[in-house]
C-alpha cells in the first residue's frame, strides 16, 4: 500500500499520462469551473447575501432586531416546538427501527414506505390536514370549540405540523443502520441473561448513537426551520404563534429587510452548524460501520 502511494507522488506527470481514465487537464478544469460557478450562484451567494444584508445597517440594527420582544418570543416558540417534536420523533424512530430491523414480518416494505410518506407531501398540505381535523370547520372543530381548546392558530397545531414534517428523519436513519448491524449482539446479551431494556441500553444504543444523533440533528434543523406547514396552522399572531421563519416573513413583507435578514441569519447559522455536525457524524458513522464488516 505505502509503496503504491509513494510512486505516483514521486512522478505525478508520468502516472497521469499512463492512466486511461483521465480527461485532459483543460477538460478537467472546465468541468470544475462550471460546477463551481453553478454552486456559487445557487448556494454560496444565497448564504453570503443573508449575512451581508443582515449587517447592511450596522451592528446596532442587527442586535436590536434580535432582542426585540417579538423576535425573542419567536425564538422561544421555535425552541419549544423543537423541544417537543424532536424527542417524540426520536422515540418513534427508535421503536420503528427496533420493530423493523430486528424482526421479520410481512408488510415490512409497506410500513417503511408509509413512514417515508411525510417527505413526499407538500408542506402546505402537511399543515392543511390538521386544519381539516382540528380547525373550526374540521372533524373535531365543534367539540374543541365547545370545550374551549385551541389547536389550530395555537401552539399545539404548530407542534403537530412540525412533528408531521420531521416524522421520518430518525426512523429512516436508524432502520438501515440497525439492519446492517444485525441481531447477533442483542441475541448474545439475551442468551447471557440480560433483560430487554438492559440489552437496549447497553448493547443497541451504544451501537447506534452516531446514527441516532445524525437523525436528531437533521430533524431539529427541519423542526426549527419549517415554514409552509407551520404557516398554515399558525395564524401569524405576533408574539404568540410566530416561529422564527414566520417572523422573518413578516419583517420581510414589511420591507424591514435588514431586520428580516438579521433574524434569518440565526437560521442560516443553524444550517451551517447542522452541515458541519452532519459531515462530522458521517465520518463517525462510516467508522462505526466499517470495522464490523
Amino acid at each position: 500500500m505505502s509503496v503504491a502511494v509513494a510512486i505516483p507522488q514521486s512522478s505525478p506527470g508520468q502516472v497521469h499520462s499512463r492512466l486511461a481514465n483521465r480527461e485532459p487537464a483543460w477538460v478537467r478544469w472546465t468541468l470544475i469551473s462550471l460546477a463551481l460557478v453553478f454552486l456559487t450562484g445557487f448556494l454560496v451567494l444565497p448564504l453570503a447575501v443573508v449575512f451581508s444584508q443582515a449587517f447592511s445597517k450596522g451592528w446596532s440594527v442587527y442586535a436590536s432586531a434580535l432582542v426585540e420582544s417579538n423576535a425573542l418570543a419567536a425564538i422561544r416558540l421555535t425552541l419549544l416546538v423543537a423541544a417537543i417534536s424532536v424527542p417524540l420523533n426520536l422515540v418513534f424512530g427508535l421503536s420503528a427501527a427496533w420493530a423493523i430491523a430486528k424482526f421479520d414480518f410481512s408488510g415490512k416494505s409497506l410500513l417503511i414506505t408509509l413512514i417515508d410518506l411525510p417527505f413526499s407531501v407538500s408542506p402546505v398540505v402537511s399543515g392543511l390536514i390538521y386544519v381539516l381535523m382540528f380547525g373550526l370547520q374540521g372533524w373535531f372543530g365543534g367539540w374543541l370549540a365547545d370545550h374551549d381548546i385551541k389547536i389550530i392558530f395555537a401552539v399545539p397545531g404548530i407542534v403537530m405540523a412540525t412533528i408531521f414534517v420531521t416524522f421520518p428523519f430518525v426512523a429512516r436513519e436508524l432502520i438501515p443502520l440497525m439492519q446492517a448491524q444485525g441481531t447477533d449482539e442483542e441475541e448474545a446479551a439475551i442468551v447471557l441473561g440480560a433483560s430487554g431494556w438492559q440489552t437496549f441500553w447497553r448493547v443497541t444504543l451504544p451501537n447506534i448513537k452516531w446514527g441516532l444523533l445524525y437523525g436528531v440533528i437533521l430533524s431539529n434543523a427541519r423542526a426549527m426551520g419549517e415554514f409552509g406547514a407551520v404557516s398554515v396552522v399558525s395564524g401569524h399572531i405576533r408574539g404568540l404563534t410566530n416561529t422564527i421563519p414566520l417572523h422573518v416573513e413578516i419583517l420581510y413583507n414589511e420591507y424591514n429587510s435588514a431586520a428580516a435578514f438579521a433574524v434569518a441569519s440565526l437560521l442560516a447559522l443553524l444550517a451551517l452548524v447542522t452541515l458541519a455536525l452532519k459531515s462530522f457524524l458521517e465520518w463517525r458513522l462510516h467508522a462505526s460501520i466499517t470495522p464490523s464488516k
Binding site: 448556494l43 451567494l45 419549517e226 421563519p245 437560521l267 444550517a271
Partner: peptide, 16 residues
Amino acid sequence: IVDLPFALPTAVAGIS
C-alpha cells in the same frame, strides 16, 4: 455545502 438546501430553512432561501 451541497446539502445546504436541506439544511437552510426555505423562508431564508426564499428571501435571499
